[in-house]
Simulated scan of single mutants.
Amino acid sequence: MTGPASLGMCGVRLWVVVPAFDEQAGIARTIAALAAQRDRDFDLVVVDNASTDGTARETERACTAYDLGVTIVTETRKGTGAAADTGVRHAIAHGATHVLRTDADTLPTPEWTAVGRRAFSAGADLVTGPMRARTDEVRLRPWERLVLPGVIGLCQTFGRFRPSNRAPELQGPYRMSPGCNIGVSARAYEASGGFPRTAIEEVHEDRELVNRVRRVSSRVEYHRDLVVHASVRRLRAYGLRNTLRWYLDHGHRPDVVDVRGVA
Rank of each mutant, 00 (worst) to 15 (best):
T106P: 08
G87S: 04
T128D: 08
S121K: 05
W112S: 01
R117G: 06
V138Y: 14
W143G: 07
W143R: 12
H98C: 09
G116H: 06
T135S: 09
T97G: 10
A84L: 04
A104L: 13
F158Q: 02
T128F: 06
T109S: 10
L146K: 05
R117M: 09
T97Q: 11
A119H: 11
R141I: 09
R141A: 15
I152S: 13
A119T: 06
G153V: 01
W143D: 14
L126V: 01
G123N: 06
I152F: 14
L126E: 00
A104C: 15
M131I: 10
R141D: 11
A114P: 04
L148W: 11
G95F: 06
T106N: 15
T157E: 00
V99H: 05
P110C: 01
A84E: 01
E137H: 07
R89G: 06
S121V: 02
A104N: 15
A83G: 02
V127D: 00
V127N: 00
D125G: 02
A96F: 12
W112M: 01
P108Y: 05
G116I: 05
A119F: 09
L140G: 05
R101E: 00
R89W: 09
W112P: 02
R145Y: 06
D105V: 07
A84T: 11
V147W: 11
G95M: 08
V138Q: 12
T128N: 10
H90I: 06
V127I: 15
L140W: 04
W112H: 13
P108D: 05
Q156H: 14
L146M: 09
R141N: 07
T135C: 04
V115D: 10
R132S: 02
A93G: 15
S121F: 03
S121T: 08
T80R: 15
M131T: 11
V151Y: 03
A133G: 09
T109P: 02
T109Q: 13
T102Q: 04
F120A: 03
T135N: 06
K78R: 08
G129C: 13
T135M: 06
G123L: 05
D105F: 07
E111T: 10
G81V: 03
T80S: 13
A119R: 14
R89E: 10
T157A: 09
T135V: 08
A124L: 03
A91P: 07
W143M: 15
R132F: 05
Q156D: 14
D85M: 01
H94W: 05
A119W: 11
A93Y: 04
G79W: 05
F158N: 01
F120Q: 03
H90L: 11
A119P: 11
G95N: 07
G87Q: 04
